[in-house]
Amino acid sequence: MPAADLTRAALSAARVWLVGGGKMGGALLTGWLDHGVAPDNVTVIDPGLDQGPHGVRLAADPAAPLAEGPAPDVLLLAVKPQVMDSVLPAYRALGGGPTVVLSVAAGRLIAGFETAFGPGTPVVRSIPNTPAAVHRGMTVACANGHVTDTARATCEALLGAVGDIAWVTDEALIDAVTAVSGSGPAYVFWLTECMTQAGIDGGLPADLAARIARATVCGAGALMDASPEDPATLRRNVTSPNGTTAAALEVLMQESGGLGPLMSRAVAAATQRSQDLAG
């Protein structure tokens, strides 16, 4: 069976409880429904929601779905890291069985979920990013030893419904992933802000500067996505010798104070913060 058909089959059969229907949870839910998850196979547990997509069950707390069963194939935790500890005890009964605990919360270790749910619980820790809202996300995931191939395929299908997905076997790498892709959209947005301000400083009207900066960043991203060439080649393609782009890159590519070393320091700071949050 082709990979796309396997993905759709895994999605259509999956029973999912989504804990937290906020921005990330909502983006995931939309992606699932668009890719074939049956609405009546999904339960969204969030006291702040009073309506959802047609056919998706809503619950204010886990008591009702836990009492009625059956247990979900995947319990996806999409609540903020700082409230996770207050949420987990309600789902303790799902631990130690076939239900996969799938987290999208930053800074929460697999070991913490194993402790909360008990021995033998399958756990997947993942880090998606905000472009998941437009189905262009990047997610990296890590599974513990209790996750079967079938469960892994289901988690991959769920996460892949909103973009690209990669796996790592070393959980320690998730901190760097968080710093690059999890936080990365903010870097791109800030670059766009800086380009806008630079245009204003160069004499452009503010609305025009904002328009061309935004369009340029979006267009360059689309070109990079569509091109088989790597970013370095694409950069060289637009850089004429002794031209305007070369003049700008001489500033941006300085060995000590340029964008490269600055980005490395920024990612290192975000990585350290991720490690600090994980304890």
Rank of each mutant, 00 (worst) to 15 (best):
V147R: 08
D34P: 02
T139Q: 06
G137W: 00
Q275L: 13
T30D: 14
A59D: 11
V104T: 11
A213T: 12
R236V: 07
C194P: 01
A176K: 06
I110F: 00
G96H: 07
V83M: 09
A172K: 13
A151N: 01
A64H: 09
A153T: 12
R108G: 02
T139V: 12
L259D: 10
E114G: 03
H135W: 01
A9Q: 14
G95I: 04
A132S: 15
V104M: 07
G243S: 11
W32D: 10
Q197L: 14
G120E: 03
G36H: 08
L277E: 11
G199W: 00
A161P: 09
L158N: 02
R57E: 14
P53Y: 01
A198G: 15
V147M: 08
W190Y: 14
D170P: 06
D201T: 13
Q272D: 15
A266M: 04
D276I: 13
L277D: 09
A111G: 13
G243T: 09
V180H: 00
A60H: 13
K23L: 13
A153L: 12
D149E: 15
P53L: 00
L29V: 07
A186F: 05
D85I: 01
T7W: 00
G163N: 03
T99D: 11
A166F: 03
E250S: 14
P39G: 10
R125I: 07
L76M: 14
M195S: 05
I212H: 02
L28Y: 05
